[in-house]
């Protein structure tokens, strides 16, 4: 039941953040005032249907143009963008990834393709996303600048598979004039898209687990976020049922504040002892599950 609710929320948010369906006629992206509103998930603002801005794209553009705007006396330090995702992070943390991110939903759907699965991802790779955030989103756009003091949006330009899928391919189809400009940069972007699409068929959410800088940012709030899953240690029998169902490879009973937890609630449903519950601001949500006889006797 809850999984269906989550899927419905994912679909609704995908359409809310990509609600401009006049693009086949205008052959251009949406250019209205809603584009000043932050998309909670990774959603390229050059996608023709996109109605909001992507926070990761916006931060890079602000960092890349920081010197120029300071020279013009404008103090655009990214406070509006960081404030937007910071409030979302403080409220929900990576629950945003599990419930509101269109690219997260796409990866989940790809993983439903039948076949052998290899869900294990090397432990060190889970820290890659923090390096991507620090280097490709902040440091390189800010410090690797040309003679005019302008930087590049490194993550968008060289890596982001969501941008290639949602914007790169559709814009090439919509604007044939752009096709003659295609080169190795586009090939590189297609390579990363294919890599993560194929990987998603075999492993659950590989981009979210290893590379997504927005997921890394939201993960920083795992200890302070308002809505969170909580473990009742008295009820937990360490049966590891939560390990088996987690799409992010989290061992919830060992680390309830894991930065990879997307609060999808699968572990809560799978726990036979009612040891995992959702809480908001310290208040338990939902009825307290009765303790099974096995847990009472143990």
């Amino acid at each position: 039941m809850m999984e269906r609710v989550r899927r419905l929320v994912q679909v609704v948010f995908t359409f809310l953040t990509n609600g401009y369906w006049a693009f086949p006629f205008s052959r251009n992206i949406y250019q209205g005032p809603l584009k000043a509103i932050c998309s909670p998930g990774l959603n390229c603002y050059s996608c023709p249907a996109s109605t909001t801005y992507c926070p990761i794209g916006a931060i890079q553009q602000l960092m890349a143009g920081l010197r120029m705007s300071l020279e013009m006396g404008q103090l655009y330090l990214g406070w509006y963008v960081v404030g937007s995702i910071g409030v979302l992070g403080g409220l929900f943390g990576r629950m945003v990834c599990g419930w509101l991110c269109p690219f997260g939903m796409i990866q989940e759907l790809l993983h439903r393709i039948p076949g052998r699965k290899f869900d294990a991802i090397p432990g060190l790779l889970r820290y890659l996303k923090f390096a991507v955030l620090a280097l490709m989103v902040v440091a390189l756009p800010l410090f690797a600048v040309d003679e005019f003091g302008a930087g590049d949006p490194w993550f968008c330009k060289y890596l982001c598979p969501a941008g290639t899928l949602e914007a790169g391919i559709p814009m090439i189809l919509l604007q044939p004039d752009l096709r003659h400009t295609l080169g190795w940069l586009y090939v590189n972007k297609i390579f990363f898209l294919v890599l993560f699409v194929v990987w998603s068929v075999f492993a659950n959410r590989p981009f979210c687990r290893t590379t997504c800088p927005l997921g890394a940012f939201y993960g920083l709030f795992s200890r302070v976020k308002m809505v969170r899953l909580s473990l009742d240690e008295e009820r937990c029998t360490e049966c590891r049922a939560c390990h088996q169902v987690c799409p992010m490879g989290v061992r919830f009973n060992e680390n309830p504040v894991d930065t990879n937890c997307i609060t999808c609630l699968r572990c809560q449903k799978a726990c036979p002892y009612g040891a995992i519950h959702l809480e908001a601001g310290g208040v338990r949500l939902g009825a307290r599950q009765s303790r099974p006889a096995q847990a009472q006797s143990s």
Binding site: P33, Y53, W79
Partner: peptide, 24 residues
């Protein structure tokens, strides 16, 4: 950020196609 006028700057970026973002 709002008081510094950043939403206008963000909007100005977001309504343009970012060619480098889409790999061009």
């Amino acid at each position: 950020g709002i008081s510094a006028g950043e939403p206008e700057r963000v909007l100005d970026q977001a309504i343009r196609i970012c060619l480098s973002c889409i790999g061009i």
